[in-house]
């Protein structure tokens, strides 16, 4: 399984904080996962197509070409605003 987390504005837009997908459902890269989620229609397409959405794999910021394997934790989130 692959655990997918959403934070802040994204979590509210999607009304989901986390979910589990099989490796087959998730796809092989971050970009593929994002594309598959976006294809679910609203609110996914609007929330995840924003060009400032960031992603982390196993708690390290990652790019779209980052490969995914079973057991990974993937997070999508807006630009950070701490401090």
């Amino acid at each position: 399984m692959i655990r997918v987390l959403f934070f802040a504005r994204l979590r509210e837009q999607l009304d989901v904080g986390q979910m589990e997908l099989s490796a087959e459902e998730a796809g092989t890269t971050v970009a593929e996962l994002r594309q598959r989620l976006t294809a679910r229609g609203e609110p996914w397409s609007t929330a995840l197509s924003a060009d400032n959405v960031l992603c982390a794999v196993n708690q390290q910021q990652a790019r779209g070409d980052e490969p995914l394997t079973a057991g990974d934790e993937v997070a999508f989130y807006p630009p950070v605003t701490g401090g």
Binding site: A8, Q61, A75, Y77, V80, G82, G83
Partner: peptide
């Protein structure tokens, strides 16, 4: 502080 503001995953 500069890096905390741009890298640490906090949201206000």
């Amino acid at each position: 502080m500069d890096y905390l503001k741009t890298r640490a995953p906090f949201w206000k």
